[in-house]
Simulated scan of single mutants.
Amino acid sequence: MNVLLFNGAPDNFPNSTSDRISNHIAQLFKDKDIQVTTYNLAKANLPSLDMMGKTIPESVAEMCRIFTSSDIQIWLSPLYHGGIPGTMKNCLDWLEMTSKYPKPYLSGQIVGLVCWSDGIQAMQGINNMDAVAKALRAWVLPYAVPVSRADLYTEDGTAITNAYTSRFKIMADLMISTGLKFELPNDLQPEL
């Protein structure tokens, strides 16, 4: 099983919320000897979507390969003005390049969703990601983790609280058990 952690945050600084959550979730899978690939959007250097281009940029080709080769994915995003960051949506829009693949977009993949905000509106980002994942033919895990940053860390700020540690573990366990059982039947594979 190959797990993709899609860190959709545009920030790229040490000890950021996105890195801390991503590293924590990655460790949950590594503890069970499951291969984890982290795709950090802030380091990806993806161009803006250009459907008229004659060639696919190498960074886009690599992103498409990573996204389509995973078994399960967890998308991580901050809430920006009621939704996911535009750079994250741009990345996901580039999956249009996979439309002619035998299994286009994210067909048959299971996606878990995590979003954080400074208030209590993180569910808006989850709903935004849910709509995009389903449009890309993914199966969205019916358990998501909306995060209030005010409650994410212990008082000294050095660790994730037990409440969120438990929620992330539940998600990881559900992803593993679902991923081991789930396979899109051949008669439901899309025809091109």
Rank of each mutant, 00 (worst) to 15 (best):
M52C: 03
A144S: 12
T98R: 13
A150C: 06
S18N: 03
G83C: 08
A172T: 09
T158C: 12
K134H: 04
G86A: 12
I74R: 00
H81D: 03
D50T: 05
M88W: 06
A144R: 01
S148K: 12
Q109D: 04
A44S: 09
G179K: 01
A150W: 08
I72V: 07
W94N: 09
P146H: 14
N127A: 08
W94F: 07
I170N: 11
R149K: 15
K181H: 07
M129Y: 02
V132H: 04
Y153R: 05
P142Y: 00
I21C: 10
S70V: 02
A9C: 08
S22R: 12
V3A: 01
N128Y: 05
G119A: 13
C91S: 14
E58R: 05
C91N: 13
A44G: 04
A135I: 06
I120K: 11
V114I: 14
L28A: 03
C64Y: 04
K32N: 11
Y143N: 02
T161D: 05
S59H: 14
T38F: 07
S77Y: 01
R167L: 13
D187Y: 15
A150N: 08
T55A: 03
R149Y: 14
L92Y: 08
T17A: 04
V60Y: 09
M1T: 06
I66F: 11
V111P: 00
P102V: 07
T158A: 13
S99M: 10
M171G: 07
K30F: 11
V140A: 00
M97A: 13
S107F: 08
I170D: 09
K32G: 11
R149T: 15
M175S: 02
I110R: 00
L152N: 14
L184M: 11
D151Q: 13
D93M: 14
C64K: 05
K43T: 04
G157F: 11
V145Q: 01
T178F: 01
P185E: 10
V132P: 02
I34D: 04
E58W: 02
F168V: 04
L174R: 02
N15T: 02
D156W: 15
D173V: 02
A150Y: 06
N90Q: 13
L141T: 00
D187H: 14
Q35E: 10
L136I: 15
A26R: 09
A138G: 13
A42Y: 04
S166N: 15
F182K: 02
Q189H: 12
V114G: 03
A144D: 03
N45F: 09
N127I: 05
D50A: 11
A144G: 02
G125M: 09
S99E: 10
I56Q: 06
I170E: 13
I74Q: 00
Q73I: 02
Q27V: 03
I110S: 01
H81S: 06
L95T: 10
T161A: 05
V3I: 10
L79D: 08
D156Y: 15
V111T: 01
K134C: 03
Q35N: 07
T158M: 12
L28K: 04
D11V: 08
L95V: 08
L152R: 14
N127Y: 06
L174E: 01
G108K: 09
T158W: 07
L141N: 00
M175W: 00
V36N: 04
Q73R: 01
S107C: 09
F13H: 06
M88G: 04
A9G: 07
